[in-house]
Simulated assay, not measured.
Amino acid sequence: MHIKGDDTLLFIGDSITDAGRARADPTSLGNGYVHEIAQTLRDRANAGSGPTPGPSPRVINKGLNGNRVYDLESRWTTDVTDLRPTVVTVKIGINDTWRHYDSGLPSPVHEFEACLDRLLASTAQTLAARLVVITPFLLPVTPEQEGWFDDLVPRTEAVLRAARGNGAQVVRADLALLRAVQDREAAELAPDGVHPSPLGHRLIADAWLAAVDTRTPVPRR
């Protein structure tokens, strides 16, 4: 897949995507991986040949703190379909696991998968958009969080099935961060085990660029 200057890239998900964006400003991208991706693509366009910079894609951030997959479904028409993106990236799943442990809020994996599958299938049919799915991840910083994998592992497998069943490009953020944590403390990449540090966000951006836009060189970190 190659990203073109006339593409509209829409990112939707939970707080990891939100990353502090200003809700009242539709151009705000937050301070996380979405901003990093947009900046890299702008830098590439500006480095093109010719006296003026080339076009860079429009980037929209529709992440929202606390969202589970069902929250995405409730706002999908206004926050995705109506905006007519050409590339849709979804990052969801960790809150479905987290709320199970801290609030007892159920999100059965089969229902989670069915919901995500509906969103991807309807988007492909309605928009003919290219689909990208970023896997959820966890870098435990407490003994309690180690137990979350009992729920997160099958949920990640559900994400992969839904993505592949709908022809979506998969970005394995979970594997990228696990590789990175071999040389660093988990808290350096995600201080609370869930929300990435600036370095963690950059690694997610690098994983997205490596999987989705092969023209953009991604440095080793």
Rank of each mutant, 00 (worst) to 15 (best):
E188R: 02
P154C: 14
T214S: 13
L105C: 11
W148H: 14
P140V: 02
E146Y: 09
P55K: 06
V159N: 09
L9W: 02
I92M: 02
D151G: 08
F149M: 11
P191A: 11
V171P: 08
T142S: 14
G32N: 04
L10A: 14
H201K: 05
H100G: 15
V181G: 00
P55A: 13
Q169P: 02
R118A: 07
L178K: 10
S122H: 07
D79P: 07
I12N: 01
L127F: 04
A207W: 05
S122Y: 03
T142M: 12
L160G: 14
Q169M: 15
T156R: 12
A168P: 01
V171W: 04
L72T: 02
T86F: 07
E111L: 13
A190H: 04
Y101P: 15
V218L: 12
P219T: 14
R220H: 12
R130C: 06
R155F: 04
L175D: 11
R42P: 01
V194N: 04
A211G: 10
D192I: 08
T86I: 12
N67F: 00
P136G: 03
A19I: 03
V69K: 04
L199S: 08
D18H: 07
W208K: 07
M1P: 15
A114F: 03
D18R: 02
A173K: 00
I134P: 00
L177Y: 00
P55E: 10
S49Y: 05
N65A: 11
V181I: 06
P198Q: 01
A45P: 02
H201Q: 06
F112H: 08
T123E: 04
Y33V: 07
A124M: 08
D150E: 08
A168I: 10
N95H: 09
R21S: 08
E144M: 15
I3H: 05
T78D: 14
D71T: 11
T27L: 12
A176F: 01
P196T: 00
R215T: 14
P140N: 04
R184T: 09
D25Y: 01
T52C: 06
L64Q: 13
D174C: 01
S122P: 01
L83H: 02
V80A: 00
P140A: 02
P219I: 15
T97P: 05
T77P: 00
V159K: 05
A129D: 10
V194D: 01
I134M: 10
N65R: 04
S122V: 12
R155E: 06
P57G: 09
